[in-house]
Amino acid sequence: MSKALSLDLRKRVIAAIDGGLSCRAAAARFGVSAASAIRWRQLIVKQGDARPGPLGGDRRSGYIEKHADLILTLMDAKSDITLAELQAALAERGVGVSGASLWRFFDRRRITLKKSRRTRTSRTGPTS
């Protein structure tokens, strides 16, 4: 996984830019990309410092979590609903999610549904 460049390096690049160098010249001087120097300068202007943000983690589950009540209501309405059926029902209501994101939604809540086999009972021996 990638690692954020140090705050010390970021401050030195910003100081060089403030000292009169262009973002590209400061980037070349310190051996970082021009895009990084430009982004760090924009962070200084926008929020006052160039600290790196958090790396990794889940960034997209907030979308599906907004619709948790709807998903759980649909699941309660039909107890043996499949992920594909649930995905289609959500799409009808304007919520576009993937089957994998639905699976992770239920996994976070430790909700599992074990389907029963749709075979008739054996007369000669039990089926497992």
Score class of each variant (00 low, 15 high):
Ala50Cys: 15
Ala50Ile: 03
Arg51Val: 08
Gly53Leu: 10
Pro54Gly: 14
Gly56Leu: 03
Gly57Val: 02
Gly57Lys: 02
Arg59Trp: 02
Ser61Lys: 02
Lys66Trp: 01
His67Phe: 14
Asp69His: 13
Asp69Leu: 12
Asp69Cys: 10
Ile71Arg: 03
Leu72Ala: 03
Thr73Phe: 00
Leu74Met: 11
Met75Ser: 11
Asp76Ala: 15
Ala77Cys: 00
Lys78Cys: 08
Lys78Ser: 08
Ser79Gln: 12
Ser79Val: 09
Asp80Ser: 11
Thr82Ser: 15
Leu83Ser: 03
Leu83Asn: 09
Glu85Cys: 09
Leu86Trp: 05
Leu86Ser: 07
Gln87Glu: 13
Gln87Leu: 06
Ala88Asn: 11
Leu90Phe: 08
Leu90Asp: 09
Glu92Phe: 00
Gly94Lys: 05
Val95Asp: 04
Val95Ile: 14
Val95His: 04
Val97Ala: 06
Ser98Ala: 08
Gly99Phe: 01
Gly99His: 09
Trp103Asn: 12
Arg104Gln: 13
Arg104Cys: 02
Arg104Ser: 10
Phe105Asp: 01
Phe106Tyr: 01
Asp107Pro: 00
Arg109Met: 10
Arg109Lys: 15
Arg109Phe: 07
Arg110Trp: 00
Ile111Tyr: 10
Thr112Phe: 12
Lys115Arg: 15
Lys115Ala: 12
Ser116Gly: 08
Arg117Leu: 13
Arg118Gln: 09
Thr119Pro: 00
Thr121Asn: 08
Thr124Ala: 14
Thr124Val: 15
Gly125Cys: 09
Pro126Thr: 12
